[in-house]
Amino acid sequence: MMWFGMLHSLIFNAIIGICESAIIEKYKIPNRMWLIILANYVSMIIGLFYIAPHFSSIIGNLDFWGGNTNYGEYRLKGFLMGMFTSYLATLVIELPFFYFAVKEKLNRKKILFPFFIANSITNFIMTLIYFWIVESGGIWK
């Protein structure tokens, strides 16, 4: 999980930002892709490195990244709680970036639904990938 987290932080955030920008474009809202990519880097740093581990530890998973946990002992409930709270934080953190990424000010009023759809899709996919990585060595505690 740690190595995938590094790959996520270095490369996948740019790909996620490009995908989210494209989803916003599907709603006929021209945007500044670089701001959406920046939003993903900022929210990932805050969400996955601070919020997810904190809320994961509240449920009992004291090793969110799995660097010290033995195989078969990773606590999946804590992982899911951490990922869910980081998703909520992502919505709060990224919304201002998306708002200002919209090129035409009149379209800013239309950003909320496409923003929610784009973020929900990409967060769900990333959560599934992370879950796939940890579930074989995890327990439901």
Rank of each mutant, 00 (worst) to 15 (best):
Ile93Asn: 03
Phe84Lys: 06
Ile59Tyr: 04
Ser57Cys: 09
Ala14Thr: 12
Asp63Lys: 06
Leu112Ala: 11
Thr69Asn: 12
Phe55Arg: 03
Ala101His: 01
Ile46Leu: 08
Thr69Lys: 11
Cys19Gln: 10
Leu38Val: 00
Asn119Gly: 13
Leu38Trp: 07
Leu91Asn: 05
Met81Cys: 07
Phe100Trp: 01
Leu80Thr: 09
Ile18Thr: 13
Leu62Pro: 03
Asn119Glu: 11
Asn123Ile: 15
Tyr41Gln: 11
Gly82Val: 02
Gly82Pro: 02
Gly82Thr: 01
Asn40Asp: 09
Ile51Pro: 02
Ala89Gln: 07
Ser57Lys: 06
Ile125Phe: 10
Ser9Ile: 09
Arg108Leu: 13
Ile51Asn: 00
Glu94Tyr: 13
Pro96Glu: 15
Gly60Pro: 00
Ile15Arg: 06
Glu20Gly: 11
Ser43Tyr: 02
Ile45Glu: 12
Ile37Pro: 00
Ile36Thr: 05
Gly82Lys: 03
Met126Phe: 08
Lys110Thr: 09
Arg108Thr: 14
Ile125His: 09
Glu20Thr: 13
Ala39Leu: 10
Met33Glu: 07
Gly67Ser: 13
Phe64Tyr: 06
Gly78Ala: 12
Leu76Tyr: 14
Phe100Pro: 01
Pro30Phe: 10
Ile59Ala: 08
Ile29Arg: 00
His54Asp: 10
Gly60Tyr: 15
Ile58His: 14
Glu25Met: 14
Lys109Ala: 14
Lys110Ile: 12
Phe84Pro: 01
Ile58Arg: 14
Asn68Asp: 15
Ser120Arg: 02
Asn123Thr: 11
Thr122Gly: 06
Ser43Thr: 05
Ile11Ala: 15
His54Pro: 04
Ile125Met: 14
Val42Met: 03
Gly17Thr: 02
Val102Leu: 03
Thr85Cys: 06
Val42Cys: 09
Pro30Asn: 13
Ile117Phe: 03
Val92Tyr: 10
Phe12Lys: 10
Lys77Leu: 15
Glu20Pro: 12
Leu91His: 05
Ile133Arg: 05
Ile46Gln: 04
Phe49Gly: 07
Ser56Gly: 07
Ile29Trp: 02
Tyr99Trp: 04
Glu73Asp: 13
Ala52Asp: 01
Ile121Pro: 00
Leu38Gly: 01
Ile46Pro: 02
Val102Ile: 08
Leu112Glu: 07
Tyr41Met: 11
Ile24Ser: 00
Leu112Gln: 10
Ile29Lys: 01
Met81Val: 05
Ile11Asp: 09
Thr90Val: 07
Lys109Tyr: 10
Leu10Glu: 12
Ile125Gln: 15
Tyr50Ile: 08
Thr85Gln: 05
Leu35Cys: 10
Ser86Asn: 12
Cys19Ala: 14
Ile23Ala: 10
Lys109Glu: 15
Lys28His: 13
Asn13Phe: 01
Val92Ala: 14
Phe79Tyr: 04
Ile51Asp: 02
Ala22Ile: 14
Tyr71Glu: 14
Ile36Ala: 11
Ala118Ile: 04
Tyr27Pro: 03
Ala101Pro: 02
Met81Ala: 10
Leu7Cys: 08
Ile16Met: 05
Ile16Lys: 02
Ile29Asn: 00
Tyr130Met: 13
Pro30Ser: 13
Ile15Gln: 11
Tyr87Gln: 02
Phe113Val: 15
Gly47His: 04
Met83Pro: 02
Trp34Ile: 12
Glu73Gly: 13
Ser120Val: 04
